[in-house]
Amino acid sequence: MSDPSQISRLDKLRVTREYLAYQLQRTDATIRELEAEEKQERHRAEQARADQGWKIQPQRGEAPPVLHRGGCATYQSRDGHLLDRGQARLALTHETYIVMCEICTPQTDLMDG
């Protein structure tokens, strides 16, 4: 005869299953949080990289090419290629006239240093 004060093996397994399900939910939540943090960090790193570069909007019709800071939302480069300071300065010495974006004012940081 079994002792009524004893927990059955089946009940122990049910409790264990509930605990493991809880642990799995917590682990899944932590994974989602960490993935979101990693995504935000990648975005911040990409933005910081863009802020340190320049991009040239190609000539459109009669409008001359426009130099932008890498993070300027006025023009989104299709290839995502950014110019470094030396390349941007070299582009300005090219015989084609390049205008500066009036929104991001790329010349400010380009001429420093």
Rank of each mutant, 00 (worst) to 15 (best):
M1W: 10
S2N: 06
D3F: 11
I7K: 15
I7Q: 13
L10G: 12
D11G: 09
D11E: 11
D11C: 07
V15R: 13
T16W: 03
R17A: 02
E18W: 09
E18D: 15
Y19Q: 12
L20G: 01
A21M: 05
A21G: 02
A21S: 10
Y22V: 15
Y22D: 15
L24N: 09
L24Y: 06
Q25S: 13
R26P: 04
R26W: 03
T27P: 00
D28A: 08
T30L: 13
T30M: 11
T30R: 03
I31Q: 04
I31G: 03
R32L: 13
R32E: 14
E33W: 01
L34A: 07
A36D: 12
A36I: 00
E38W: 05
Q40R: 09
R44V: 00
R44N: 09
E46K: 11
E46P: 00
Q47R: 04
Q47Y: 06
Q47T: 06
D51W: 05
G53R: 00
W54S: 13
K55Y: 03
I56A: 08
P58Y: 03
P58D: 08
Q59R: 12
E62S: 10
A63P: 00
P65V: 13
P65S: 10
P65K: 09
R69E: 14
G70E: 07
G71F: 02
G71V: 00
C72R: 00
C72G: 02
C72E: 01
A73W: 03
T74N: 08
T74D: 08
T74L: 08
Q76N: 09
S77H: 04
R78K: 14
D79L: 05
H81A: 08
H81W: 04
D84M: 00
G86Q: 04
A88W: 03
R89H: 10
R89K: 15
R89Y: 08
L90H: 12
L92A: 03
T93N: 11
H94W: 08
Y97N: 12
V99I: 06
V99K: 15
M100R: 06
C101H: 05
Q107K: 10
T108W: 14
L110D: 01
M111R: 07
M111F: 07
M111T: 11
